[in-house]
Structures are given as C-alpha cells and as structure tokens.
C-alpha cells in the first residue's frame, strides 16, 4: 500500500501543456459550432464523459470508501482537484441545509493563458470541470448539479464552481452497498 500512494506522482506533465491543449479544443469547437451556448453544452458533456471514467481511476488510486455526507464528498473532490489539476480549491458557501457548496479556485490551470474576446462573453470556458464533477459523482450514485457562478475570465476575483446535491441514486446502488 505504501507504494500506491507514491505511484501517481510519477507521470506529471507541465500544466501549460494542459492549458494549451484545452485551449485548442475549445477554439476548435467554437469554429465548428457557431453557437457559443452549444459549445458550453458540449464542454459539459465532454467533461461528463471524462468524469464517468476518471472516477474509477480516482477510486483505484486512492482506495477511498463511499461518502455518507456531502462534506465528505466535498473533501474528496478537493483531493481529486489536487490530484488531477494540482490545485487546492477552497470549499465554501455552504447552504444552510448543507446540500450545496462551492469550490473557490484562485488559480485555474485551464484558464492560465486565456483572455475571452468580447463576442464570447457568454462562453462557459471551464464547463468541462462541472461536467466532470457531475459524471464522476453519478458513477458513485450521487446525482448532483454543477455550474459556474463566478469566472475569472469574466472579471471576477475567483472562479467559483457551485455543486448542488439532488438525490442519491438508490436504484442504481450496486448490491451489497445499499
């Protein structure tokens, strides 16, 4: 077990490579789809498809157990951010009922070198992250909604990603887990 904790430090890449690749992807999508809202939607879907696969990697490498409350979930997503993007966002703005919270990103590797032109102000550039969170949680039977509240690209101080718990997918619970 001691080795498995060190194993995922091995394959590190420069974050600029990620920034540039992601930028190329978004730029290409804007060329292909004329509608900016469609691009945002596609980015979310892309993230979702990444999330449903990435969760397995996260579970295999960290060996974490099932979350029983949303605080636990938030902590684990926070460590996933650290693992996959090398950033540690703050978990803040809990709703009184404890079913909604935000990740505050003061730096975001996806947007490091990016400025949004005026005609793309409605683009949700980081929507991929929202999709990835939703997809990953869906695979562990948590139905959530995720969206961007603040965006550094639009002049805000931080990037804020809001996550809202909707329900537990009881019928999708694997046997022996429910």
């Amino acid at each position: 077990m001691s080795r498995s904790t060190t194993r995922f430090d091995v394959k590190k890449v420069n974050s600029e490579l990620v920034t540039l690749t992601y930028g190329a992807l978004v730029a290409q999508m804007i060329k292909d789809l004329d509608n900016v809202d469609d691009v945002s939607k596609q980015l979310e879907r892309l993230g979702y498809n990444m999330g449903i696969r990435l969760i397995e990697d996260f579970l295999a490498k960290t060996g974490t157990g099932r979350c029983l409350d949303l605080k636990d979930t938030a902590d684990k997503i926070q460590s996933a951010f650290k693992m996959y993007l090398g950033i540690q966002p703050n978990v803040t703005n809990w709703s009184p009922s404890g079913d909604e919270f935000s990740f505050m990103l003061d730096s975001n590797p996806l947007t490091e070198l990016v400025e949004l032109p005026d005609d793309l102000k409605s683009l949700k550039y980081c929507n991929l992250l929202c999709g990835a969170i939703r997809g990953a949680l869906e695979m562990v039977q948590l139905d959530v909604q995720s969206w961007i509240v603040q965006d550094q690209l639009k002049g805000d101080q931080n990037t804020e990603i809001r996550v809202k718990f909707i329900r537990r997918l009881e019928d999708a619970m694997p046997a022996g887990e429910d």
Binding site: L59, G65, R66, V140, A172, P174, G176, E177
Partner: peptide, 24 residues
Amino acid sequence: KSSGIEVLEADTFRLNCFQTLTGV
C-alpha cells in the same frame, strides 16, 4: 449493511471477489 460474497472457498480453489464503488 453487509457486502456481498467476498470470498468463496471450495476444495480445490478459492474465489475472491472485489466490488468497486461503481459496481464493477
């Protein structure tokens, strides 16, 4: 709150099963 079968043992072999959180 019991898990399902994790180990099944017979005369000549043993079956170990591990279910991931996603159900695989």
